[in-house]
Amino acid sequence: MNDSSATSAEHSDSLKPYMGTWLALLALTLLEVALGYVSMSQELLMTLLLCLSVVKAALIMAYFMHLKHEKLTFVVTLVASLLFIMVALCGLLPDGLRMLTLGR
């Protein structure tokens, strides 16, 4: 884990990581579009797309937003709070199925 080296690492001259991230993100996007044309169930497609999106978001946060070079405690705090609320919010999704049986 990179930790106390903290912010100094980002001063490296190389722009290669940015280019690499950019290409990876474009490639993942292409993969997503391609998946859309493969015949599969909507649920499976959604799961795959969401997984890919989480990977893309993680790449953006790690490299473009420099989280890779922040202190580990900072990263943990941010990611934990993001995950906590988003997972908790998803708790209300199953109730949406009730609309199928109500008043129809």
Partner: peptide
């Protein structure tokens, strides 16, 4: 700016591709 980009990474699959 990266955050705005990041949000689009979810809009694109969830709204368009689905």
């Amino acid at each position: 700016w990266h955050f705005v980009d990041l949000v689009w990474m979810f809009i694109f699959p969830l709204i368009y591709l689905l």
